[in-house]
């Protein structure tokens, strides 16, 4: 159990931010929220009668991707799992954060 959770946690920490960055960049939201109407809709929908929010959908997409990858990591043989460097659990999220700082640079530079 402990080895399996370790593999899950590390792989989730690696795959989730990558999936999140791609989801935001390419807008792969699992669902859309329309706050003015208090309505949810599947997939990416255009704004209607107010703004459309994709943040919840991006997190859902990423959680599914990270969850699937994490479960797969639990199933791999121990000798393979041992090769996984735990430091990736902080290095990849840090890179994702820097990616977003770059992606949003226009807000601060104009």
């Amino acid at each position: 159990m402990s080895r399996a959770f370790a593999a899950f946690a590390i792989v989730f920490a690696v795959v989730y931010p990558i999936a999140y960055a791609i989801s935001v960049w390419k807008n792969f939201a699992l669902f859309t929220y329309h706050p003015a109407l208090n309505e949810f809709g599947m997939g990416v929908q255009k704004a209607k009668d107010g703004p459309a929010m994709y943040w919840y959908g991006w997190m859902a997409t990423s959680a599914i991707a990270g969850g699937i990858a994490g479960v797969v990591a639990c199933l791999v043989p121990e000798r393979v799992a041992r090769r996984l460097w735990p430091g990736l659990a902080w290095l990849v999220p840090l890179c994702a954060m820097l990616f977003f700082a770059w992606l949003l640079r226009g807000y601060f530079l104009r």
């Binding site: 959770f5 946690a9 943040w55 997190m59 959680a63 735990p86 659990a89 999220p93 994702a96 226009g106």
Partner: peptide, 28 residues
Amino acid sequence: LNAANGSFELKEHLAAIGLGMLPAYWWS
């Protein structure tokens, strides 16, 4: 207020990425 707006955009993304780090953080 572009900087304020961008700061909040970054806040939402950092919060989301932080959520993904929690299992590894807790395990560590």
